[in-house]
């Protein structure tokens, strides 16, 4: 069933796939991000309770959702790498890690910035913010482990195991923190408990979400291209590629 995927285990094919995919991710991603955030920040109606400060959800919510999804995607890549022994899967995983970490940081930062008008302080041990913080730690752990090995093939496998341990933990952490929060804080206003959201607010949010997802994919693909080249630079196909690129430059 998955046979069609196997050729992409070869770095050369994976590289070509990245080259093909990049424009499809990059430009629609940028477009959606622009449309979503402009619409959300400038044109969507104000929240009747929070005024304009709620508008940060157009950045906060997509990054919070995608920080988790990127981690899961990383773990899937790691699983593929471990089960089928694909080197390219580990490359994809490590290409995602810093991107996911930055997105997590954005979610944390915007969450904290939102907390200022809502709670009057930059940091509250809110359940969502706390699990985002722990998620950031998990990302940093994977990146640090990868960086600690000199042999990058070994590094990929090791970081992959840690990503899998992390992904088993992500839901446990999420629910345990939520539960801990209700225990310790009693009834605080949860900012996500709105039963419904007006469609004119929802559409820009969905577009921003799609845009950020595509943008993450585009950056991942670009980073993966670099990773493949860096790891395979001694292979003939990379040398050919470099020669062709140089030739093109001279032609221009």
């Amino acid at each position: 069933m998955w046979k069609w995927l196997h050729p992409y285990a070869k770095p050369e094919r994976a590289y070509q796939l990245c080259v093909t995919l990049q424009p499809y991710f990059l430009w629609p991603g940028i477009l959606c991000l622009l449309v979503g955030s402009l619409w959300g920040l400038a044109f969507a109606p104000q929240d009747y309770q929070q005024g304009d400060s709620f508008r940060i959800i157009y950045i906060h919510v997509p990054s919070a959702i995608l920080s988790m999804s990127t981690y899961v995607a990383m773990a899937v890549a790691a699983l593929v790498g471990i089960v089928w022994q694909w080197r390219t899967a580990f490359m994809a995983m490590i290409a995602m890690a810093p991107v996911g970490a930055v997105i997590t940081f954005i979610a944390l930062f915007t969450g904290a910035a939102w907390g200022k008008p809502m709670w009057g302080t930059w940091w509250v041990w809110d359940a969502r913010l706390t699990s985002e913080l722990i998620l950031l730690f998990l990302y940093l752990g994977v990146i640090a482990l990868y960086g600690a090995f000199e042999d990058k093939q070994q590094a990929g496998k090791a970081a992959g195991v840690m990503a899998l341990v992390g992904v088993v933990n992500v839901p446990i952490i999420h629910y345990s923190v939520e539960w801990w929060n209700t225990l310790h804080q009693g009834a605080t206003i949860s900012k996500f408990d709105k039963p419904s959201i007006a469609p004119e607010m929802l559409w820009p949010l969905l577009i921003a979400l799609l845009g950020l997802a595509l943008f993450i994919a585009a950056v991942t693909v670009m980073r993966m291209k670099n990773e493949i080249i860096r790891r395979e630079y001694h292979r003939p196909w990379v040398k050919d590629l470099a020669a062709r690129a140089l030739g093109d430059d001279h032609a221009v």
Partner: peptide
């Protein structure tokens, strides 16, 4: 097991494990 081959694995071990032990 993952960090055993690294010369300076001690702090890294803590970084990897502390978030996992939170629940």
């Amino acid at each position: 097991g993952l960090t055993v081959g690294l010369q300076r694995g001690g702090v890294l071990l803590a970084l990897l494990l502390i978030p996992v032990f939170i629940p």
